[in-house]
Design a binder for these strands. Structure first.
Length: 345
DNA sequence: AATCCGGGGGC
DNA sequence: GCCCCAGGATT
């Protein structure tokens, strides 16, 4: 039996029932695919249901305020996905008459839709014979066929895409694509796959050559940048505080946060007092009290954010401020949301 | 080709 | 602590 038929056989026996597998509605498929980029099914699932409840159709999403989209996306990370999601919904409504395009090329022109996602939507919704190559597929192909090219090098990416196309089942592309990804997620898992009962163990090169633990090969370890964040949590006598929206490039674009002072190293109360005076803030007579004397280390893929929250009880009236009871309505990073949750006023 | 972009879970 | 997760965009 061929590679693809073994995958299909395994899939029909072992597949999980997932909501986006019960439909061919491109809106739902697209939504699930964007959410599942670099995200586990279990993490994305509740977001998928909340989005469909809030935005049943692509028109609803297109008409929404970006802030509402970001708020629903809060906690899922990679927030450019949410901004691109919103932009693409508008694009589909305005340029494609509310219908998702059917071709790989047109799908790939949508914001946030790359090679993998375009192939996924085209094959799942419209039976277009395009192979998907995600992290699961890289692992299955690298092990079964013994490919030692780095999966994140241009030559490796090209090679795996061509290999995926050669071994796919074009006649059953929907189930085959779902199947090889599911096989990678469940059977050919990253760590300690149970090769003894794998239906593909007979022809598996990695198993034969004892390379299961070393394939696939991936280079370029990410190096982490350490940053020091100081958030100024202003509170006036009415319990109003100040929020600002992050603009420009970098992390958390368009999300909200407290006024931020970034420093080269950890700041102590004297340094903070000096800073506030030097900035000529009107609350120079007020005190900034560290809420957490030991910095919270919030870890992102490329950054470790050593963060102190400073409570600044000001005698000013924050006319432009936000009532504390309303801060939970803004889209904020998890770092901020966790703090808001723990602070008792 | 290299880097950036989140947060969570498993071991 | 390290790796991975239904990747994509930018430089």
């Amino acid at each position: 039996m061929s590679f693809s038929h073994k995958i299909l056989d395994w899939y029909h026996t072992h597949k999980r029932e997932l909501p986006w597998r019960e439909t061919r509605d491109p809106y739902k498929i697209w939504l699930s695919e964007i959410m599942l980029q670099q995200t586990r099914v279990a993490q994305g699932m509740p977001y998928y249901h909340r989005f469909l409840e809030a935005f049943p159709m692509v028109h609803d999403l297109a008409e929404a305020q970006e802030e509402k989209v970001l708020k629903l996306w809060q906690g899922l990370g990679y927030y450019s996905r949410a901004r691109n999601l919103h932009a693409t919904a508008k694009m589909v409504v305005e340029q494609f008459g509310g219908k998702f395009p059917h071709t790989y090329k047109e799908l790939k022109s949508l914001k946030g839709v790359g090679d993998y996602t375009a192939s996924a939507i085209a094959s799942f919704c419209f039976d277009v014979p395009e192979p998907v190559v995600d992290g699961n597929v890289y692992r299955v192909l690298a092990r079964y066929f013994g490919v030692d090219l780095p999966i994140n090098s241009p030559s490796g990416i090209k090679y795996f895409k061509e290999l995926a196309r050669e071994v796919m089942d074009a006649e059953q592309i929907r189930d085959y694509n779902q199947g090889i990804m599911e096989f990678g997620a469940i059977q050919c898992a990253p760590k300690k796959p149970y090769c003894l009962l794998c239906p593909l163990n007979e022809g598996c090169v990695a198993l034969k050559e004892n390379k299961v633990d070393s394939l696939p090969i991936k280079n370029n370890k990410t190096k982490v940048r350490v940053r020091h964040f100081n958030y100024l949590v202003y509170l006036d006598i009415h319990n109003n505080t100040l929020l600002e929206q992050r603009k420009g490039k970098g992390i958390w674009q368009n999300l909200y946060q407290f006024p931020l002072v970034e420093s080269e190293k950890e700041m102590n109360p004297d340094e903070m007092e000096h800073y506030l005076k030097s900035e000529g803030n009107p609350q120079l007579l007020d005190m900034a009290i560290p809420y957490n004397p030991d910095p919270i280390i919030h870890k992102l893929s490329h950054q470790h954010l050593h963060t102190k929250f400073w409570i600044v009880k000001t005698s000013d009236i924050l006319e432009e401020g936000t009532a504390w009871e309303e801060v939970t309505q803004f889209p904020v990073p998890v770092l901020i949301a966790d703090f808001i949750r723990t602070l008792k006023i």
